[in-house]
């Protein structure tokens, strides 16, 4: 049966039951039902059934929430679990950092021995990942920028963090790196594959700049990885609870690792 432009379908009838049709379509359905008493009876039964179900289940939503379903304690529990896990990882990380130094010293004196140590495994885990490539490219573009190195200045840090968190759909914070001699300059939003990335920039008294590149949707947690570009710029990167982080700078590895640890400690 043709009513208006389109045939009346079962989807129209169900949407009619739910009161979700546009007025003209609703009128068309009513005309149709007027001409088809059996369908009208069926649809009326559906409507009555819907009303009854709603009345019956209405009381369920008015019940007070039991204490164990309060969200705040569950969040607190999740955070303390997260903190415990981070602490364990940080200890593992500290151990890896020690190996890195031992490894490079041993590597220096023991050239040619090529014994695989944990340190060489870490330094050789230089898989080129899009996240790192993007971070390097952002670093190169903006670190040399004189006039507009950042989009939002550190003076508006609260606004910057709120804005970037909103765009990434994840709670961010700009780590405080003054203990490492670096001050926040500001940050910007960047394109990154199917979503945005955030970048924070820091500098020290000597004008050395660092970038912390952050993006969401990096689901496989990884430990710290190290990558150098062969021209003096290097990065530590890791993934943690859905977020990917790349700390990039023209610093030596030990120094960069110390900053990376400071960042890691403050996030989350």
């Amino acid at each position: 049966m043709m009513q208006g432009d389109r045939l009346i379908g079962e989807d129209d009838l169900q949407a009619y039951v739910d009161g979700r049709l546009a007025p003209d379509r609703r009128d068309a359905v009513e005309v149709f039902l007027g001409e088809h008493p059996e369908e009208a009876e069926r649809i009326e039964a559906h409507r009555a059934q819907r009303d009854m179900l709603r009345a019956l289940l209405k009381t369920k939503i008015e019940e007070p929430i039991p204490a164990r379903l309060r969200v705040a304690p569950i969040v607190e529990e999740a955070r303390s679990r997260h903190r415990r896990r981070r602490l364990q990882r940080l200890r593992a990380l500290a151990a890896a950092g020690a190996w890195l130094i031992v490894g490079s010293v041993a590597g220096w004196y023991g050239k040619g021995l090529s014994r695989p140590t944990e340190a060489t495994q870490i330094t050789e885990a230089v898989q080129t990942r899009p996240m790192v490539v993007d971070a390097f490219s952002a670093y190169r573009t903006f670190v040399s920028e004189v006039v507009h190195p950042v989009e939002v200045d550190a003076k508006q840090e609260a606004h910057l963090v709120q804005w970037l968190s909103k765009r990434l759909g994840a709670p961010l914070s700009a780590p405080n790196l003054t203990s490492q001699g670096f001050r926040l300059m500001g940050g910007r939003l960047l394109p990154a594959g199917d979503g945005p990335a955030a970048m924070f920039m820091y500098d020290d008294d000597g004008g050395t700049r660092l970038t912390l590149y952050v993006r969401a949707g990096e689901n496989d947690d990884t430990a710290f990885r190290y990558k150098g570009d062969g021209k003096g710029v290097s990065a530590f990167y890791w993934r943690d609870t859905g977020m990917g982080y790349v700390l990039t700078g023209a610093l030596d590895r030990t120094r960069l690792l110390a900053v990376a640890e400071a960042v890691y400690r403050q996030l989350g």
């Binding site: 994840a170 859905g242 977020m243």
Partner: peptide, 23 residues
């Protein structure tokens, strides 16, 4: 039902950082 909701809230909170943005 409340066990189910509690599990749901715990999972939602632990997955919050990787939640689909604008979802």
């Amino acid at each position: 039902a409340d066990d189910l909701v509690q599990d749901c809230l715990e999972r939602a909170i632990s997955r919050w950082p990787s939640r689909h943005r604008d979802g």
